[in-house]
Every structure is written in C-alpha cells, then in structure tokens.
Design a protein around this nucleic acid. Structure first.
Lengths: 143, 143
DNA sequence: TTAGAATGTTAGCTTTGGCTAACATGTTTT
DNA sequence: AAAACATGTTAGCCAAAGCTAACATTCTAA
C-alpha cells in the first residue's frame, strides 16, 4: 500500500472525512457547555468559539441536518445521542493531547496547540500518544 | 494572558498566519523535487501532490506574487532565497514529526499523519518533540 | 402592554483551494 | 513544416466557513 502525498484538503476528500475541523470544534464546544448548563444557546457558543452569531447559526443548521444536534429557531441547542458520542470522544482526544503537551513542558499557547493538533491525529496515533504520556508521567518526569 | 478557544480558521485569522497549509505543502514539495532535479514543472508538482494542474498553476502564481518562487508561463519553477529558507524549515519539521511517529511505533498512514500534524505544531512544540524523540531513541527504545 | 434591548436569522459577500472544460502553447514525429 | 500529442493556462464553477448589514423574534422592564 503505497503512501502518497496530498494536500490537507486532498486528504479530507480522499478519506471522505465526515466531520470537518470546524464541525468538530462546534460539537466539542457544545459538549463542553452542556456539562456546565443544559441551556446552550447560539450566543454562548459564539462567545466560546470567538465567532459571530451568524456563523454559529449556519453551522448549527448543518449539524442538525446531519443529526448531531436538535435545534429549532430561537431555541436551545441539544446534542443527540450521536452528537454526545462524538462529543465525548472529541473531549477525550483533547484531554490526551493537552496532557501530552503539558508533559512535554509546553507553556505558551498550549490550548491553541492542543486545538490544532487534535484535529490532525487519528485513533492509532492518539492511543500511542496516550500510552507515551502515561510512561513519561511516571517514569521520566524529571526530563 | 488568557487563552481562548477559536476554530482552526479563527486561529489562522487571529495570528495572521502568512502561509496556509496548502502553501506550505506546495513549497515543501517544490523543495523536495528541487533536490532530485532542478527542472521542477507544473506537471511534476501536480503529480506529487495529487492535485490537478490548474490548481498548481493557481498556487504557483500566488507563491510567485509573494516571492517564494520565480515562475514564468510554461516555464519551470524555481524557489527564491526566501522560498528555500522556508522550504528547508518545512522539510526539517516534516522529518522531526516523521521520526517522532516512527519512534511511537506508528505504521499505518504514517505519511498522512505526519503531513497533518506538521501543519499544526509551532516551533516550541516542534523543538520539544525533537528533544523527546532523541531521548526516546537512545534511552527507552524498547518501549 | 408596549417600547426598547438583547438575541437570533437571513441574505449576500469574501477567500481558499479544489475541480472541469475549453483553449493556448510547446514538443515531437512523420 | 505540419500534424499530433503533451503540457500548461484560463475561465468559471463549487463548498466550506467566516464576515457584515438588515431584519425578525423574544425577553424585560416601564
């Protein structure tokens, strides 16, 4: 199985990825906000993600069409079962990358780096990073 | 300095990043191809990156406008000083991520994962990963 | 209860980076 | 040198994901 180069967009198309990075960002954030309060609204999400409300409305419609959330105009945003499943995985992925970076000693822009890297890794790499972090944590922390 | 969430696109805008992922992919590949032969043409680049020639033409024009390459219609593509600088850094970044993944034991889609992750990391994280890989390599390789 | 403020939606614009179809240029072969 | 082929460019389309401006709805408080 030859491996070939593609552009980022090329990989997305080639692999028929179902969730774009943005969709992941929104679902992840809805999940996070849902844990604090079960009234998640367009304004909360916009604020949390630093986007304007119309962008949120547009994305929510898309997520609703693809059954990640239930939403009706002017209402509040609820994750579906499917959305919750995805959301919890995304949050776990975030946690794993964040802890790895912490463990590496990253101090500046750690959130930004987490957010960027999390969209890049597949399950295999994620698991391996997770294992590595565990090892680093209790074997060579003074590194 | 509070850290806030953004979408991927949001980070790009906020940081006024000068090179998009695609631009990086093209420059990196031109650099790679230039090492094999100094006649890099639109068709070579298209083939290498799995994009259609019109996409390459368009991007080359952009890279030329921003002084990463010198190009004239139907001619061949040459990196400028600036382009070579960037290119060699991109290749080095690629190498560091690739070796890290190898070291993690990644076998499947290692090139794809490298290509995705390399666009995500900043210099700080890159250096830290580089250090870590060195340590892993000669201290705990049987891991 | 109605006016004003706050929140949400719509319409329509922008950029990026793909694509195809059609055309232009260059190269090779007869 | 002309025909045929290979390569490159142009024009114009598309989707994603942002944005602003204008409008609609809902909430709050006088």
């Amino acid at each position: 199985m030859k491996e070939e180069f593609y552009t980022l967009k090329g990989y997305r198309i080639k692999n028929e990825e179902i969730l774009s990075s943005s969709m992941e960002d929104y679902i992840e954030m809805i999940y996070r906000l849902s844990q604090k309060s079960d009234e998640v609204r367009v304004s909360d999400l916009s604020l949390a993600l630093n986007v304007r409300p119309p962008s949120t409305t547009k994305m929510i419609k898309r997520l609703a069409k693809e059954n990640y959330v239930v939403y009706e105009r002017y209402g509040c945003i609820k994750l579906t079962e499917k959305g919750r499943d995805v959301g919890s995985k995304l949050l776990e992925r975030h946690r794993i990358i964040f802890e790895f970076l912490e463990c590496l000693g990253v101090k500046e822009n750690i959130l930004e780096q987490t957010e960027k890297i999390e969209h890049a890794v597949n399950n295999d790499v994620l698991e391996k990073i997770n294992e590595l972090t565990k090892v680093l944590k209790d074997e060579i922390l003074p590194f």
